[in-house]
Simulated assay, not measured.
Amino acid sequence: MIFDMDGVLVESEPFIAEAAVAMFAEKGVTVGPEEFRPFIGMGEDRFLGGVAEARGVVLDMPRDKLRTYEIYLDLIRGRLEPLPGVATFIGRCRGLGLKLAVASSADRMKVWGNLDALKLPPETFDAIVVGEDIVRKKPAPDIFELAARRLELEPSACLVVEDAVSGVQAARAAGCRCLGLTTSFASGRLIESGANWTAETLAEAPADVLRW
């Protein structure tokens, strides 16, 4: 079982968008949180860079990304909660003897910050893959192929849980099955992108996803 993080284990997109808006404001540029939506799931370089390109702004990377993360980690303190069903679903997977991984396009700083805020120790998972571990981001399959290798499994033996269109496309390109959660995109969009099942959160995940 390979979990994306944002929109799957936690709803952090509003916080990272708020942090990005604040970072751009420090540069004297006013942007809205909705401008980041097309770049959900593509990693923070693209999340920030896509809006910067559209606005004709030149970012100072990685400094501006680091500043965004600093703001983000302040914002989530005491406010970040796991999405419904996370603990129960992970417990069910463990009970079935499944290997677990997190594969997030976010950088290590954000992933570890989220896990700490959620009180999910890294040891909860058999493997963790972050944005710095790969070159090609979603919708390229690289992140899920690497997660499968670290689990010592073939991608075809893995089920990915994703919420973004680019993530679903990446999962299917890797040869994984995919459960799409509708926290960021509608069910129809996720199915069109290749999701085998959809649900609102892990609390409503179809029983079939643990039986195939």
Rank of each mutant, 00 (worst) to 15 (best):
G41Y: 06
R77K: 15
A52R: 07
L80E: 08
C93T: 07
I90V: 15
A52T: 08
V86P: 07
A54E: 08
R79I: 04
R67T: 03
Y69V: 13
G43M: 11
R94L: 12
A87H: 11
F39W: 13
K65R: 15
R94G: 05
M42H: 09
L83H: 11
D74W: 00
A54Y: 07
A52P: 14
T68Y: 01
Y69M: 05
E44N: 12
T68S: 12
V51F: 05
I90L: 15
I90Y: 10
L59H: 13
G78A: 07
G49V: 13
L83R: 06
E44I: 14
K65T: 14
L59R: 11
M61W: 11
C93D: 04
R77V: 13
D64V: 13
G91H: 05
L48F: 09
V58F: 01
L66N: 04
V51S: 00
G78K: 04
D64Q: 10
C93P: 02
L83A: 15
E44W: 04
R94A: 12
R63Q: 13
T68N: 08
R92H: 11
P84G: 09
F39A: 07
V57R: 00
Y72Q: 01
E81V: 14
L48I: 13
F47R: 03
V57W: 03
D45M: 06
R92E: 14
L59D: 11
P84F: 02
D74M: 04
P62K: 06
G78V: 14
V86I: 06
P82K: 01
G85L: 06
V58K: 07
M61R: 15
K65D: 05
G49A: 01
A54M: 04
A54Q: 13
E44H: 03
A87F: 15
I40T: 11
R63V: 08
G50Y: 14
I76P: 03
I40K: 09
I71V: 15
G43Y: 09
G43Q: 10
R67F: 06
G95H: 12
P38W: 12
R63Y: 00
D64C: 11
R77G: 01
E53H: 13
T88G: 08
R79P: 02
G56V: 09
L73K: 00
I40S: 05
G95F: 13
R67D: 09
P38R: 11
T68G: 02
P84I: 09
L66F: 04
R67G: 03
D74F: 00
E44Q: 14
R79C: 05
G78M: 11
P62Y: 00
R92F: 03
R92P: 01
D60E: 13
D74R: 12
G91F: 02
G41N: 12
R94Q: 12
A87K: 10
I71E: 07
P62H: 06
L80A: 13
G56W: 13
R55T: 00
L83W: 09
P62E: 09
P82I: 10
G56Y: 12
M61G: 09
D74N: 11
L59N: 14
G56Q: 01
L80F: 11
D74T: 10
T68A: 10
G50N: 08
